[in-house]
Design a protein around this nucleic acid. Structure first.
Lengths: 106, 106
DNA sequence: TAGTCTATTCGCAAATTTGCGATGTGGCAA
DNA sequence: TTGCCACATCGCAAATTTGCGAATAGACTA
């Protein structure tokens, strides 16, 4: 996510063009990318609502601003539960994971 | 989780003795351990409901049985979103992450 | 313009997770 | 008992994530 170069909204549009208009075999990749984007956006929103800069949040969880920036990058795929929990803990939240059924299309 | 040596229930009891009766400073560690236990159990239940053995699920996501066993271990802390998604995808599910508020006690 | 603040990106080392075979155990059936 | 099957655990290499400083850029203000 960003203030300039690559907004989350843009990322979604780019993804749409890149995958949706392409072959349907790539739908799985789309879903994964979307899920990453979702996590990135959630972290971003959580931080914003808390009124923190990346550097401030970073300090709270014992890391640096560039790490937070990476986590909020819509293209980043390396999220770990451990990291999500560190962020959640700093913001008085807890991470809830659910496996929800997905409609199997034809 | 297991069929013999270390049941999930036992793990919870052990955790209780190890942390709860100990110093309150370790409450954070408790929460983390519990969250891991929760993920482990969810994977276990998902697999069971699908009527699969560890080896079968492993094959579906392109890994081996020992890996699944490790993921279902209540003490394992290394869950990644990528792995959860691989499992979810194999079982026609998707992973939903939520940051839920936690009551800040005195 | 210079200075400051916020955020992105790069590069590489360190830490962590994953892959996977080998080994051991318990349950169950022949 | 012997032979499987399902699972747990160990050990180590390979892959991935994290840590973090440095460089870059846009926005804003003095």
């Amino acid at each position: 996510m960003s203030v300039k170069r690559k907004s989350t909204t843009d990322a979604v549009e780019i993804l749409h063009q890149r995958f949706f208009k392409g072959q349907p075999e790539r739908l799985k990749a789309l879903e994964e990318a979307r899920a990453d984007d979702e996590v990135a956006r959630k972290i971003f929103e959580l931080r914003k609502k808390a009124g923190l800069t990346q550097a401030q949040l970073a300090k709270m969880i014992g890391t640096t601003a560039s790490v937070i920036s990476r986590l909020e990058d819509a293209d980043y795929e390396g999220h770990s539960l451990a990291m999500l929990r560190r962020i959640a803990a700093a913001l008085d939240k807890r991470v809830e994971i659910r496996f929800v059924p997905v409609r199997r299309s034809a």
